[in-house]
């Protein structure tokens, strides 16, 4: 409710509603596998209910523009390679008998302006093993790193640059 006073005006376009409804309905049809009138009308009902609930919780206020969504796979591909690299490192640390960990906290201010950008940034950092976002406050992020090596990698700010690319025209 607090957020409502901060940004009172936002408009939901018909395309957003229609697109979300189509995604929900496709999921319903794929999972049910039975195409009888009763079941399909139940599906239409529950999809509309979900849309209404999503609208109430402010789902569409943070919606990403479609061109950002289309660029997500490129980010995912890069993240996949990062995840593979860092998980091999973390696995080696866990298996080595001496446990060579040097936990380090890194705090930095991000240049991300939008809430969804911050969420994507924080989640991308958490997703790769070895770094966990433990606090987000306005534009400050606090990240816990397992070794100083992963902390240094984080300082290069590569993730942030990749995510900023999502929002460029």
């Amino acid at each position: 409710m607090k957020n409502k006073t901060e940004s009172p005006k936002y408009t939901i376009t018909v395309w957003q509603l229609l697109g979300t409804f189509l995604v929900l309905m496709t999921t319903w049809l794929l999972w049910s596998g039975l195409y009888k009138p009763l079941l399909i009308s139940l599906g239409v009902f529950s999809c509309s209910l979900s849309l209404w609930l999503a609208q109430r919780t402010g789902f569409f206020r943070h919606a990403l523009p479609i061109r950002s969504l289309l660029r997500l796979p490129a980010l995912w591909w890069w993240l996949l390679i990062e995840v593979i690299k860092s998980s091999i490192e973390v696995a080696r640390i866990i298996l080595s008998p001496s446990l060579p960990i040097q936990p380090e906290l890194v705090e930095f201010t991000t240049t991300e302006k939008t809430n969804s950008g911050k969420v994507i940034l924080g989640n991308s950092i958490t997703l790769s093993p070895g770094t966990v976002t433990i606090d987000v406050d306005e534009d400050r992020l606090l990240v816990h790193c397992l070794t100083s090596n992963t902390a240094n990698e984080l300082r290069s700010r590569e993730v942030e640059r990749r995510i900023e690319k999502l929002e460029i025209e």
Binding site: Q102, P103, E104, L105, V106, E107, F108, T109, I134, L142, H144, S148, A151, R155
Partner: peptide, 10 residues
């Protein structure tokens, strides 16, 4: 967290 003190980046 038990860790080296926070490094402030900015």
């Amino acid at each position: 967290p038990k860790a080296e003190s926070a490094k402030v980046e900015s």
